[in-house]
Amino acid sequence: MKLEQHRNQSVKQPPTIGILYPGELGSAIGALLNDGGHHVVTTTVGRSARTCTLCRNAGLETLPSVDDVVRAADVTFSFVTPKSALPVAEEFCHASRRTGRRSLYVDANSVSPITAAEIGEMLDRLGLSFVDASVHGLAANLKSHGTIYLSGAQAEEVGPIFEPWLRTRILGDQVGAASQHKMLMGGLTKGLVALYLELSLVARDAGLLEQLHDCYRHYYPGIMTVLDRLLPTYAVHAGRRGDELTEVERTIRSLGLEPRMIRSARRLITALGEVDFGNPPADGFTPAAVLERAYAAGLLDPPEADATASNTPSAVCSASPSVGYAADHSIISTP
């Protein structure tokens, strides 16, 4: 079923877009499309106060229920956590059945191609169209650095919705290609964060953090630019990033391969998600603050049963220098 067939309006008018749900990425995409002349609708029923604020700031029209969103939208995008992707797709199917609306559904979540295929099969049983999508880039920088990747039989029809406000790439007509691409891209950035986090915590314990970071910035300035941008987001989103790495593991295993580095990265990032960072400062977390909070939480402490009086991290910590912060927010060691 072609996108034009979903529309109640003139083919010259842009389709109405539904967003489930307007969290950080969903509200950013919604605002971008809203600014581009699309009518964007959503619902915040059962969502957090933060989501309601993001939705209001993005200027999205809020409807009373998912049924109302499905009834109004020509295309509905799903932007939720990996664990919520299947339940939200199921919610969309129930709403489509109740309303009799047969609109296009686009899953843009960080899920494995196996999960994307399960969503596609669920929709297909009801005769609903489906496009697999993935967004690369932080929500705050979509216009300058964002790209949306699309795959599926109707991917070519969804692409123009975002032009020229967001770069689009079509990865073929097979559902799962966009999700697989997302897993491979996301696995690299999350693995990089995990490796940097572990080595920095070891250096902090050894009293070499300032020297190590100076060396990193001298030899790998491009990598450090990426890490300076990514690491602060983990104070809020580490738990979600851990779930996304679980989907990367699932992707690798589906190919008959064994995830090794990704598995270790997932364990570390999941543990980071359990650290209490408290309320974010008005100007957001700095990389230094994230590292210091992770260190204070004993992120690399061995299991209690393996610790001994002579080699516990606490014994090493007592001999380690204290930490201060330079004007550029990098960590500096002080006597």
Rank of each mutant, 00 (worst) to 15 (best):
P113T: 06
A116G: 14
A117Q: 14
A117F: 06
A117T: 14
I119W: 01
I119N: 03
G120H: 05
G120D: 04
E121R: 13
M122A: 15
M122W: 10
M122I: 13
L123Y: 04
L123N: 05
L123C: 08
D124L: 03
D124F: 01
R125G: 10
R125I: 10
L126S: 11
L126C: 13
G127N: 03
V131M: 15
V131S: 08
D132L: 04
A133W: 00
V135W: 06
V135C: 11
V135M: 12
V135L: 14
V135G: 06
V135T: 15
H136N: 08
H136V: 11
G137S: 05
A139G: 13
A140I: 12
N141L: 10
K143F: 03
H145T: 15
G146T: 12
G146H: 15
T147K: 12
T147Y: 09
I148P: 00
L150S: 06
L150W: 05
A153K: 09
A155L: 07
A155V: 07
E156S: 13
E156C: 07
E156F: 06
P160E: 12
P160A: 15
P164K: 08
W165S: 15
W165P: 07
L166D: 00
L166A: 02
L166S: 00
R167F: 03
R167S: 06
T168Y: 04
T168F: 05
T168H: 05
L171R: 07
L171M: 11
G172D: 07
G172P: 06
D173N: 15
Q174H: 12
Q174N: 11
Q174D: 13
G176P: 02
G176H: 03
S179T: 11
S179L: 10
Q180L: 10
Q180E: 13
Q180P: 04
Q180V: 07
L184T: 11
M185G: 03
M185Q: 05
G186Q: 15
L188M: 12
T189C: 09
G191T: 00
G191D: 02
A194Y: 00
A194G: 00
L195I: 04
L199W: 05
L199H: 10
S200L: 00
S200Q: 01
S200N: 00
V202C: 02
R204C: 02
R204Q: 05
D205L: 03
D205H: 01
A206R: 08
A206W: 01
G207Y: 04
L208C: 06
L208S: 03
E210N: 09
L212M: 09
L212G: 00
H213E: 04
D214S: 10
Y216K: 01
R217S: 05
R217M: 04
H218Y: 08
H218C: 08
Y219T: 09
Y219H: 09
Y219L: 13
Y220S: 08
G222A: 10
G222E: 08
G222I: 02
T225S: 12
V226C: 11
L227G: 11
L227F: 12
L230D: 14
L230H: 15
L230N: 10
L231D: 02
P232E: 14
T233P: 02
T233F: 06
V236D: 15
V236L: 12
H237G: 06
G239D: 08
G239A: 11
R240S: 11
R240D: 14
R241S: 07
R241C: 09
D243A: 13
D243R: 13
L245D: 07
T246V: 11
V248C: 14
E249F: 12
E249W: 14
E249V: 15
R250A: 13
T251V: 15
I252H: 09
I252Q: 12
S254T: 04
